[in-house]
Structure formats: C-alpha cells, structure tokens
Amino acid sequence: MDFDEFTPSRRGVIVGGAVTVAVTTVPAVEAQVPRKQTMAHIEKVAFEVNGKRRELALDTRTTLLDALREHLDLTGTKKGCDHGQCGACTVIVDGRRINSCLTLAVMHEGDSITTIEGLGTPEKLHPMQAAFIRHDGYQCGYCTPGQICSAVSVLDEIRRGIPSHVSASLTDQPQITNFEMRERMSGNICRCGAYSNIAEAMADVAGEKA
C-alpha cells in the first residue's frame, strides 16, 4: 500500500505517565526527508592494500571496511558492530591499527593498508597467526583477524614507548606484561572468551612469559 503523498511526521511520544493507547506516526528515522531523490556521490580513491595498488570509484558513504569486504573481496576483516564497539574490523593503516568501520574509504587516498590477508597465509603464517593457533587464541574465529591485527600492533606500540592506562609510570618505557597487553587489547571483544589464550599467544610472540 503506497501513499502518493509523503505523510508528514506527527509525534505523540508519551514520556513518564501511563501509556494507554496512542496513535503515533514514526518515520524510520527522524531526519528530514528530502523531497527529491539524491543520487549517490561517487568519488575515486586509490590506496595500497597488502602491498597492491587498488583504485576504486566508490559511493562516498562506503566505509573502508565495506570497501575491503564488498569491493575487494577481502572479507578477512570482519563487521561485528559497524560502530567502533567491538574491534573485529581492525586493520593497520600506515603502521597504525584503526577501526575500519569508522572511516570512509575516500579518506584514505594514498594510504597503505594491511589486512589480515596481508599478514600471512595458511602456507606462510605470520608468527602471531601461528601463535594464535598454537595457544588456541580463538574459537568461532570471527573476531580473530581483528585480534591478530591488534596484537601485532600492540607489541609494536609497546616497543615504540606509547604508554597505556595501566602503565605505572607515564615517562618510563612500558614493558610487555600481561597487564599491559590486556589493557591495550581491550578494544577487541571476543565473546567466545579466548582472552586468556590470546594473552599467552602474544607473550609467546613477544618472547615473554604471560
């Protein structure tokens, strides 16, 4: 049943008091609805993914995550929440880990992006990937690529002297401890609860005892 005319929104939100029966018109979202169709805006962007130059013409709304997954078939980077609340989409851009869901692909002109596929392959695993297998640092596997990208970056961040919330001193070189790794990995949620094993995999790679 289609309406010819767009029905303007009329809200009857009941706050506080008893809710009986009310008729409310609720648009799916409250944003002003444009009367005319808006065409998608397409922009070109070029960046390097896992060492390979990629040129894409994308709807400006496309996140880096969706560019990787839907346009480049690199589905190792996962969409867990699409809102920066889980870390499954973690990739390494110009040497720094970020949430690829909260950045637009068009903002990455000229950047160098490393995804889980770029770290290693089944035939030639990255040491962190091998350590995750050895220590069973995963279960369902869905958060795993993000965990591994973060784990590689975390060890690098500690070596580069970036302090964390749990560093006892702000000015001393942080150490690779179980506490430091756990705090720094906290942006990667694993609902299967492999945390204890992930910490051990990281310690193994770092050459330290967890």
């Binding site: 008729v23 409310t24 998608a40």
Partner: peptide, 22 residues
C-alpha cells in the same frame, strides 16, 4: 544494489503505528 542504498532507503519508510498497552 548496494548496502549504502538499502540503508538509506530504509530510513525513508514512514510507518504509522497504533500503539497498544503492553
């Protein structure tokens, strides 16, 4: 055709509800 288009279109559907007590 695309995720972006589907998501944007979803926001343009207007639903008129008769709310009942629950």
């Amino acid at each position: 055709e695309t995720f972006e288009q589907a998501r944007a279109a979803a926001s343009l559907i207007t639903v008129n509800y008769a709310r009942a007590t629950g």
